[in-house]
Design a protein around this nucleic acid. Sequence first.
DNA 1: CAACTGACGCTAGG
DNA 2: CCTAGCGTCAG
Length: 782
Amino acid sequence: MALAPTSTYAAGQDSSSSSTAIKASKKMENLNLPNSLNHPPRFLSFPLKRKHEILEHQNDHPPKISLTRHPPKWEPPHCSQKQAGENGFSKVKRAWSETAISELPEPQAKVSPSHQTGIVVEVHKETCATKKPLQICQRKVEEKCCESTLASKWTPSSVTCKPLKHKRAKLGPEHGTNGPKISHEGANGGGELQNQSKAGCLTAALTSDPRVTDCGKLNPEEKMLMLEKAGHAKALVLTLVYRDGTTQLDSEQKLAPAVCGLLMLMKNDLDGRTPEDPLGQNDSLVYLKLEHTPAWAQQCTHQSREDMLLQVLSRSQLVVCYKAKDLLRTTLQFYRQDLSWKQVAGCHVQDPQVSGWLLDPANPSSCYQDLFNKHCKRPHTTPAQGTKKCQGLWELYSDMELNMISVLAAMESHRIHVDKEALKRTSDLLGTKMKQLEQEAHRAAGQIFLVTSNPQLRTVLFEKLCLQERCENKKLPKTINKQQQSTSEAAVSILIPLVYTTTLCCNPQVHKIKSTFVDGILSCMTNKNYISSTWYQTSVVTGRISAKHPNFQALPRQPLQITKKQYIQGKNETVINVELYFCQVELRLLAHLSSDPELLRIFTHPQADVFTMLASQWKGVTEAEVTSEDREHAKRIVYSVVYGAGRERLSGILGVSAEQASRFQDSFLQTYREVQAFIQRTIQQCHKQGYVLSIMGRRRTLPNINAPDWGIRMQAERQAVNFVVQGRMTVGAVFCRNSVWCISECVCNCRLIAQLHDELLYEVEDSQVEQFAGEFTTPNIS
DNA sequence: CAACTGACGCTAGG
DNA sequence: CCTAGCGTCAG
């Protein structure tokens, strides 16, 4: 890839010209830019630009929007009347405060426009103002941006940004392990009919199987009998059936199809079965249709199905379902009108996927067959049983993980309403900002390049401008894999002062906000006006919970401000969220595990900022003297120690030399000697046993712990330490305790909305906040 | 040429 | 160290 050497950004300006030239062109930018755009041939010769980008610069040719990916094709979950307690959220601790505006009504709620309420996601002007060198230029650019937006005479095509093409949009919102959602009649166009008939064939094949009883064809008496039978069965095995005829037991599909029913195996013979024919003499197989029938065909069947499902799910005898969370969530979505999440949140459905993951979190099975092959060597043991008890994992499973399944399902069924239009406006605003920043960067670089491309930015910074030669005293970070010059923010912030300009690259923070938190959220909301994350219990080796689509746990703390007013059944009731925040649990855990006296002392001051105190202890100054830089360093060092990052990584993060980073680390470990001792103890133990145990009894085997290769062995050692510290413990404990508390008599009208590693986000009715807080005593781990 | 995939780089969170 | 997610680029 070659740079076009003669290309300059502003007409008539030489790229090598100094700051004055750049400043001059900046002042004239509104005039200058359209001028230069009148000469399209200039831009066509830039090899670094993509074709559609270049076209965008030609005003007379609107950008060619190539929708190369197939458009999102999916069915929205069934939405019905709004349920009381179905709320949006406002973060208290996370500073998502004041803004407010409106929420679109539920499609079927038919609220008049004046009643619209809801969430607004707004990005603050100063959002990007966290890091000093970039902050200044950021502000300037933003001011400029606002001016020019107002005065802009640009055609829409030049102002709006690239078309949305998100991964979610490409794959459809229900792809991957996200799990299927209930089909929704009438929401789709022509494809629906086709699907329905196709599904009809497949389910017909299923129900015509002589072994399967179709519940839909039974008369009320037969249904009662069936229900009774289900009640007496020794074990129930459930699986969802999808429209394409597959079930949850089939291997993962890329596009999870809609659910059309539920297959239920009632087992009475727990002995004497063979894997080839699991259907014993006294067993029966029932098919329960889970589709909304057209209004004209609707009878009283709905009620009985609901009764049946609920009875089945909440019974005390053994109920097994592979990927039980999907089943519970589907049930909740399907009976949204008639079923409270609380009824489901207490269900205990055994899930072999979870138990299998506990046995070997580092190598989770991809599908049921995989799991079966892995853990069931003898045909007569099921994955749910097996060797778990021997390994001491049984308690962990039944006391905690099992409870978590239904809680997560309830969390997933919670809808967070978002004002789509406001989000779109924000997106447009950010789009113009990005445009502005892009031009700024082009000007600074003296040429046009694709600012979102790291390789191109690298070429500009280090091959064209050769900035690395001008900062020999400072060590520039390198990329991990290829050891190239990094173009990260830390690196660019070192370079910025060397060039007499405000910015060299589009601020990656702005880019991130737009692409991930605005457009990304928007892409999660196709055909609906709310979001709800999907929570994963078994996808993280260390035992943490992860979230997707959107990833609730990675929403920014600083820049986004979300607020909402909530209307419940016409009344304006304020519902606020109380957040339980276990201040730096992992650090607390480290203190506990290592019993380091200095570290423990810090946690005896409940109100103090831990990192400030750490910095003051470590640097030997008073807390008032601790600069924000010191605090940031302390924080990074702590994390690097806790999570086992090496000094190379630390130097990259801090933007200092490796020697300096190593000195920081050493001095930290000198201060907190017990921490170091704990780390070494953990590693030694791991060497001896080949596995490590977390505080909850979670286990991770590390086969590489005794590897001959130094690098691989070191990695395993870091992983060992990381696992012990990072395993979810406090939150997990609260999780199970609280799930019970929350669904039983339920002292308050509250609901768990999100788990953010060391925080739990609850929605609590305003009047009950104090009561709620009283119920909750923060557990003291150290 | 379009569409997809995997590797890589970066950033958000902890 | 371990996540999700966005983006580019080469094959």
